[in-house]
Structures are given as structure tokens and as C-alpha cells.
Design a protein around this nucleic acid. Structure first.
Lengths: 155, 155
DNA sequence: CGTGAAAGAGCCAATAC
DNA sequence: GTATTGGCTCTTTCACG
């Protein structure tokens, strides 16, 4: 992969694989109107160039007993590097935390967690999040409904 | 799958598949200390019971030219069903929108979008988001760094 | 970029234990 | 639950246009 330009076929390959990561090379080649060999070469090139980072099974958080998604915004006490480092590391280790971002603006962090109801949420806060030192303030928002959720941007 | 209880092997299968969705049944069986046949039956049962919703290739948004992640909170003008319905539908169709939630609390929606820099962000706002009627107020926050991002909760 | 061929690996069902 | 068998498909690589 020389220039990072993708043509229409590459994009179609990526779109197809992002919907079905287990599609066989043959079927993939059919859907993008290519024969098997060049299709396979393109897929390998896309993997090597970093467009495809991982193949994964996506799990249903509801089936796993964590149906609620809560957004938590957090501000830390003091803004020194060590506090930030420790807090980020501690967050990443919590299994309930699905996403965590360092922010510009009013709050320092935005965290998305999966919990089981309000009691699961309270347990997470008291037993997990508030055990991490350095939190000055936090604001939680329950999500009522998920309107859209894609694992990858659409190429 | 009768009772929705997962044993340790089921959880290990799910964890392994969520890391590598293309692992062969043989290797999967090895890693969970099972022989191929029962391992395959468990995987099928987990799929049928809805624990595994999809197999997917995960794409790198940076490689695809949309390195920035922006969080946008939105409040709508009037809170009637049709406005909500239209707004949700319109959001879901925008390719930049990776996640969109209906919220409790101060704002109506939380949206996560992938854009290319501040100019890509401005283009998204003016040409896409603000074209959807009904927005009263919005607040954007750029993410500086992603500390954690998992596609599925850890079983 | 394409075809065709061919070896090897893995899938999956049907066995029997 | 394990082990084995066998037909089958898919993968992967090769030579070649």
C-alpha cells in the first residue's frame, strides 16, 4: 500500500468485512466483483496498512447482564501528571468501563460504563470509581435508548 | 441454552472470541481446554442465545482519515414525539455519527462523532448536524486522548 | 489485474464411547 | 463430555496470461 488512497473496491471490502468479519474470501470476492486472488491480496494489504485493526466477536451487553449504559463526566482534584496517569490506568482496568476519554472543556474525563440497573450503577460508583483517589466532582447521566452504535466508522 | 448462566468455559470462549473473532474452532478449543466438538457446540449455543451478536472487522478511524473524536450534547426545541423520531432517524444516517444516545438529565442527546480536525468538525456541524431541524442548543467537546475503548463488555 | 489448479487446513456432521 | 472418521468447503500459494 503506497499512497493511502482507497478506491471504491477497497471501501466496499472494508464495509463488507465490518459487517461480517467471518465472511470467506470467496464470498467477499463475489460481493465486491473481484476474483478470489486479488481480493485476498487487497485484504492483506488493508490489514498491513492498518485499516483493519482487529477481527472480533461483538457481545451483547444486555445478554451479559449489563443492560444499562451510563455516561459519567469526571473532574480531578489536582491537575498534575501523576494523578492523571494513575487515574487513567485505574479506569482502564475496570471491566465496566467501555470507553474513557480525556477531554477539553469543562470536565477532565468522559467515561461510558455498562452496569446492571441503578443498583449496579451505585455499586460501581462506590466500590470502583470512588475508590480511585483524586476525583473532585462527577456527573452521571443514564442513557434511555441507544439510537445508533457502530463499532467502526463507515468507510 | 436453558438457564442463562454462563460457566467459566463459556466466559473464556466469549473473551477469546471478542479478542480474535477469526480464531479457528480448533485453536479456540485448545485455549479453553476442550476438544473441538463440545467447543463448537458451545459457540453455536452462545450465538443462538444472543451473547454473540456479530462478527466484525474493526477499522481504524485514524487510517480512514477521521482521527478526531468529538462528543456533542444536544437539546431539542420542542419535546414532541415526531421531532424526536425525525431527529433520531436523521442522526443514524450520518456516517460520522458513531454513537447516539437519548439521555436523562440536562441534555436530550449525546452523540459521538468521528471527524478530520477542526475543519472537518465545522463541516459536520454546518453541513450535517445543523441541517437537521429542531436543535435548540448544542455543546461540543473534543476528546484529547482515548484511554480505553472496548467494543464489548468483558464477560 | 485476472484465471485455474492443487495442496493443505479447517469445518461440521455422524459416528461410538 | 471425548475421540474418530469422512466429505466438504475454504484458504493459500503457485504458475501463467
Amino acid at each position: 500500500m503506497k499512497g493511502n488512497e482507497l478506491d471504491d473496491i477497497d471501501r466496499k471490502i472494508l464495509r463488507t468485512l465490518s459487517r461480517d468479519g467471518r465472511i470467506s474470501n470467496q464470498k467477499l470476492a463475489e460481493t465486491v466483483n473481484l476474483s478470489a486472488t486479488p481480493c485476498w491480496h487487497r485484504v492483506k494489504a488493508l490489514e498491513d496498512a492498518g485499516f483493519i485493526t482487529q477481527y472480533a466477536a461483538l457481545l451483547d451487553q444486555r445478554a451479559l447482564g449489563l443492560p444499562e449504559t451510563v455516561i459519567i463526566e469526571v473532574t480531578l482534584e489536582r491537575h498534575d501528571d501523576e494523578i492523571f496517569q494513575r487515574f487513567g490506568d485505574a479506569l482502564a482496568e475496570l471491566p465496566e468501563v467501555m470507553e474513557a476519554y480525556l477531554l477539553t472543556g469543562e470536565y477532565d474525563y468522559l467515561i461510558k460504563v455498562a452496569v446492571s440497573g441503578t443498583d449496579g450503577y451505585e455499586r460501581f460508583l462506590r466500590q470502583k470509581l470512588y475508590k480511585i483517589p483524586g476525583i473532585r466532582h462527577s456527573r452521571s447521566t443514564f442513557t434511555l435508548r441507544c439510537l445508533k452504535r457502530v463499532h467502526s466508522v463507515t468507510p
